[in-house]
Design a protein around this nucleic acid. Structure first.
Lengths: 146, 146
DNA sequence: TTCAGTGCAAACAATTTGCAGTATT
DNA sequence: AATACTGCAAATTGTTTGCACTGAA
């Protein structure tokens, strides 16, 4: 899954919804994809500015909304008060195991979990659109270090 | 699990941690337990005020923190920007299925899910402390109504 | 009697909004 | 050419903090 393909998908989404395809929007997507792992809106903004890109905070937030709606990115929420965003690249679902002590985030995925969530949706007659599973614990280093 | 028992547990926790047992703290816990389903801090505050209880927003927030630490309540985070709190009454774990369209929240639990989460923790050498699984979808009424 | 906890208002952080200017369609 | 999108700063929302006062230990 390369960046052009992703941009292409976002452009199609925008067009389909009657939104304009602007450079700023594609830049936000590109910057998010260039980022390894999760990032929050403010830091994405700072990072983009640092790379000399001329975008405003408002556009970053606006674009993240559109990206969420287009299902190209995922939003998570760890202990803090802000959100974290990450591209959904392979379309591969994953979830997070977060250390309550040092904040380290480990990604995991489970076929069985996927099955459970579709069962739950079926049972309650919901059409699945997404999920976020977050397990909190204390990692080995933190348990031992203390 | 009745309210006095829960208050008792909170009191023990406070004592154990060297915190004082104040009327305001017990009132916050009681009000949260009286509430059916989830509520956010602001509305809990308003509700308490409405019932003539003299507490401040600061105390509500402070107490919710203590309640979280004591594992007597659970904090969730749906689409909105604020948190929702709910008592952990039976100690029974449950998760949420949220309708992306109308916001309806259905609770569910799964023994298998519990097993998966402890496997994940074992595998990554984390000591489990809690989890939040949230599935988003569109409920039947919303899919059909549209 | 002490000092942790309280209420209040002010501060703060994350996000949204209003508006005048800019650029996609 | 029209108007959706942008940047900016101001507004809003959710939460935390500072401080003088109060009450649990």
């Amino acid at each position: 899954m390369n960046i052009d393909n992703v941009k292409e998908r976002f452009s199609s989404y925008l067009k389909a919804k009657g939104h304009r395809i602007t450079n700023e929007r594609l830049l936000v997507l590109e910057s998010l994809c260039n980022n390894e792992s999760h990032i929050d809106a403010e830091n994405l903004f700072i990072k983009m500015r640092g790379r000399g890109l001329k975008v405003s905070r408002a556009t970053v937030y606006n674009t993240l909304q559109l990206l969420l709606q287009s299902n190209l990115i995922k939003r998570s929420h760890f202990g803090e008060s802000h959100h974290h965003y990450e591209p959904f690249l392979g379309g591969r679902q994953h979830h997070h195991l977060v250390c309550a002590s040092c904040g380290k985030v480990v990604e995991f995925s489970s076929e069985l979990l996927n099955r459970i969530q579709s069962d739950i949706c079926d049972k309650h007659k919901f059409k699945f659109t997404g999920s976020a599973f977050q397990i909190t614990g204390v990692c080995r280093e933190c348990s031992e270090g203390k």
